[in-house]
Amino acid sequence: MKDMLQRLQRDFNISDITERQLRLTTFHVKKQSAETLLRELRDREGYTHLNFMTCIDYIEDDIFTLVYMLHNYDKKNTLGIHVNISRDDEAMISIHTLWAQAWTYQRELREMYGIRFPGSPRVDEDFCLEGWDQIPPMRREFDTKKFSEERFGHRAGRQSEQPRKHMKVELYPNRGGDEK
């Protein structure tokens, strides 16, 4: 493990190597080297399983951190590869040719964060949100409360915590709360 990380440091200039827990190590790599590094890990180091791919929005630093989680079944090791990309120029090299499932993650990241993955299949098709016309909702600046109030209107809370009273006053005012 140590040898591999040293070699990756030399060849790919990886940084911030952190052992998070037993069998989980994370490090950063530059955007330009990420695809080659992932290919190297898959083909030469046995990290053949892409656990998942996701994104963290560090709005205060104006960056997105893409996370590729890879697992080596033989060594029982997991690597979290972090790639910082600018929130303004939110584009990343697609890895759909490395893993047959990667395009689904990229499609979701496109919808939820607005990150572009040029060449990734069906990347601009709606994933979860059909007809979404707001900013990508997983970005930190998207305010779920404000959105729901604007879209669905304000719904007043109950006046009483007593269900019987609530039914009587709010739902069946003309029937005295009697459902018979």
Binding site: F52, I56, M69
Partner: peptide
């Protein structure tokens, strides 16, 4: 997958379910 930043809130949670790939790709 959980990332925390020392605050009272989680920074990011990603849930990896097997159906993600089984039901799509």
């Amino acid at each position: 997958y959980m990332v925390t930043d020392g605050s009272e809130f989680v920074r990011r949670v990603h849930v990896r379910g097997p159906s993600y790939t089984h039901a799509i790709a």
